[in-house]
């Protein structure tokens, strides 16, 4: 089943890296926003002396942006590949359908790690002492979050009619999710209905898990969010396997 997965993933990585705009958006933008906001409010939830108190953890926002840009990019690539008949052409090879899609997940997870590494480097450079999470645990939390949000991305990619609509539809789905994620204001402050909705979204669990790990909590203390991300992944993967269109 995995035959061709690494070959295809490596190839897609190279292809993605050849598109300057995609690379800047994926790797550069979250880091730039992190540095700018970190300068204004402080990074890692600690305020910079003389600056306003950070209303939220800027590093978590940057991590969330990494996840969102990965998903937006995935939705766009799926729509373009479908419209261009690339998915159909790949499907006529001995590659298993799951392998073709998994390769793109692998690519996105790879770029997520690269973005996070850049983020860490920027944190060390610009905000020494402010970035003190357990990085291995935080990377794992981010990867799990990205995986879960990517599965939702496949559902979105299934319903996007054409490549032209991919970015706007993806943005329309993801940005409200970011607002409701609990990063900017507590979920408990939301009306009851919205609160329930928010806990059904992967971004909310992602923020809760990443914040918890950032603050030094163990995984056991956040099993509910791990379970939330895993459940959303399972549901979205099941839905996407029924609704995904290859042409």
């Amino acid at each position: 089943m995995l035959k061709g997965l690494w070959a295809l993933a490596w190839l897609e990585t190279k292809i993605f890296a050849r598109e300057p705009m995609g690379l800047v958006g994926t790797l550069g933008l979250p880091v730039v926003i992190f540095i700018l906001l970190g300068r204004a409010f402080g990074a890692g939830g600690r305020s910079v002396p003389g600056a306003a108190q950070a209303p939220f953890n800027v590093a978590i926002l940057a991590a969330l942006l990494i996840a969102v840009s990965a998903v937006l990019s995935l939705v766009a690539i799926m729509a373009i590949y479908r419209e261009g008949g690339i998915l159909k052409r790949l499907r006529a090879t001995p590659l298993a359908p799951l392998t073709i899609l998994s390769a793109h997940v692998v690519v996105k997870l790879g770029f997520t790690l690269a973005s996070l590494a850049l983020l860490m480097a920027a944190g060390r450079q610009f905000f020494p002492g402010a970035m003190t999470p357990h990085w291995l645990g935080f990377s794992a939390a981010l990867l799990l979050s990205v995986l879960s949000i990517l599965s939702l991305g496949f559902v979105v990619a299934s319903v996007v009619p054409t490549a032209r609509f991919a970015q706007p539809v993806g943005a329309a789905v993801l940005y409200p999710m970011v607002v409701l994620s609990g990063l900017f204001f507590p979920i408990e402050a939301l009306p009851r209905t919205l609160e329930v909705v928010a806990w059904g979204l992967p971004t909310t669990h992602a923020v809760a898990l990443m914040q918890g790990i950032w603050d030094g909590g163990g995984w056991a203390a956040h099993w509910d969010h791990v379970a939330g991300l895993a459940t959303i992944f399972a549901v979205c993967a099941a839905v996407a396997s029924k609704t995904f269109r290859w042409e």
Partner: peptide
């Protein structure tokens, strides 16, 4: 295939 394409930058 008819009207097939590959990745632009492959």
């Amino acid at each position: 295939h008819q009207d097939a394409h590959l990745q632009k930058r492959i």
